[in-house]
Amino acid sequence: MTMLPAPTTKKLGLVIDLDICVGCHACAVACKEWNDGGQFGPLPDESPYGKEPLGVWFNRVHSFEIEPAQKNASAMTVHFPRSCLHCETPDCVTVCPTGASYKRAEDGIVLVDEDKCIGCKLCSWACPYGAREYSEQRGVMQKCTLCVDRIYNESFDEIDRQPACVAACPTRARHFGDLGNENSAVSKLVAQRGGYDLMPEMGYKRPRRDGGSSTTSSSAAAEEKMDFSTASPLLRWIDKVLSR
């Protein structure tokens, strides 16, 4: 059912402290490892050892440089792990024509039922955060499950019942918990560290990260770089004809 459930009381999610993240990609690798070999199922790559490996990752760690607005302030580099926010009002769920995408009423986790997915890719278009990636091999959309096969897994010791990315983080920048409960450790952390939504103007609602003092900024638009060396012959021909 792709209708959203009534607002859930339990809102499981991740909180990532960008002041602490060192950009080591351990979360991304642990995620890939768990979901490739774990109980959830394969997360295969196309030609993983070939020239152009391509495959689904639920975590991708970007690095950004910040040019400070104030004079004489030093520049910053911030590592930014990007993954599903399990939004409260996710468009990726409602656009799904088959009912494969759904948001769980019991804990707010957004999942894809890979047995129902037809691979139309519309949900990935609806997501502003790039949380959904399509698998060519499996012909279906894949996304972060918040390690739903770990967090409720009673065969695990309690301490291991958390997402693989959180368990793997060597600096403890990543935290997992119930953001619907004001008294949970993650909610307190969000309040303490000034957590904020990503792209709040898009209206998908989710507290997640932290910040500090505030200044506004501006930057110039750049020319789009284009590399046609890897494009298909048809596109290269179209480019040639239109470039005349």
């Binding site: 690095s63 930014f80 506004t216 900024s217």
Partner: peptide
Amino acid sequence: SATGLGRYGAVRS
């Protein structure tokens, strides 16, 4: 706004 880092200055990848 996508990174929430605008409070520090201009952001680029």
